Simulated scan of single mutants.
Amino acid sequence: MKTPSFTSLKNQFLIAMPKMVDSSFASTLTVICEHSPQGALGIIVNRPTNLTVEEIFHQVGIERVSRGAKMNNTVYSGGPVAVDRGFVLNSSERQWESFLRINDEVQLTTSRDILLALAAQEGPADFLLALGYAGWGAGQLEQELADNAWLNCEFDPAIIFNTPAHLRLNKAASSLGVDLSLISDQVGHA
């Protein structure tokens, strides 16, 4: 019997289909940062919280902040797993102590040194700070894709760094020629 081949979705967007019933993922756009046969990790990029970067700096004990630092940037809900941990999607002009390269332009950083650099205005040109991440066990994401819970498309950093949060999901869908408002959330009814 032939073993099915594995295709990684790393460096892809996941677009939640309108029928998504899991409230953790309904109407979300997720960047897949890592995907292997053992599972997947992603960051939701269109769920802003009421927190700002300034509040995160204070929570982690960063008191020295340069004038002009992006203190008012919004913090995002990156997913339902490890919601007390910070994850920074950032342009990859330099490497940090703990990072995962998503592609040549963007990486996911989890170390404190990037926060210190952001506070000193020495951080990356583009960044999105999220609390928590989205995670899938072995075969789980593949099954959800087979069940039509998600669409996937090529990851475009401009969608997260240059597009307002409320427009990101539809902009990613439109890159596939899809209008999510025209897709029914009812399945199997003719």
Rank of each mutant, 00 (worst) to 15 (best):
A138W: 12
A134Q: 10
E142T: 04
L118V: 05
L145S: 08
L131W: 11
L145Q: 08
D147M: 13
Y133Q: 13
D147T: 04
T109G: 02
A117G: 03
D147E: 15
A134V: 13
A120N: 12
L115S: 02
Q140H: 05
L108Y: 09
A119V: 05
L115E: 03
A134E: 05
A120T: 01
A119P: 02
L116T: 08
E144D: 13
A134S: 15
P124D: 02
E142H: 06
L131P: 01
D113T: 12
Q121P: 00
F127M: 07
L118K: 05
F127K: 04
F127N: 08
L131E: 03
S111V: 06
L145C: 13
G139Q: 13
D147Y: 11
G139I: 06
A117V: 00
G132R: 04
T110W: 02
Q143N: 14
Q140T: 03
G123K: 10
A138H: 04
W136F: 04
S111E: 00
A146K: 14
L145G: 04
E144Q: 10
D126R: 15
A130C: 09
Q140S: 01
Q121T: 15
L108T: 07
T109M: 05
A120Y: 11
G137R: 01
L115G: 08
L118H: 10
S111W: 10
D126L: 08
A125R: 14
L141A: 11
A146T: 14
P124Q: 10
G135S: 15
F127Q: 02
Q143S: 09
L131N: 00
G132S: 07
L128N: 09
Q121M: 13
A138Y: 09
A119W: 02
L118Y: 06
G139H: 07
G139S: 13
P124H: 01
A119I: 08
D126A: 13
D113V: 13
A130P: 07
G135I: 10
T110F: 00
L118E: 13
R112Q: 08
D126V: 04
G123Y: 12
L115V: 04
E144G: 02
F127C: 10
L115P: 08
D147F: 03
L116G: 01
L129G: 11
G123Q: 07
A146H: 13
E144Y: 06
L115K: 09
D113K: 11
L118M: 15
L108V: 06
Q143Y: 05
A138T: 10
L141V: 00
A117L: 06
W136V: 09
T110A: 04
A138M: 02
L145I: 15
A119G: 00
Y133M: 13
R112L: 14
E122Y: 12
D126Y: 15
L131V: 05
A120I: 09
F127W: 05
A138V: 07
A130D: 05
T109V: 12
Q143T: 14
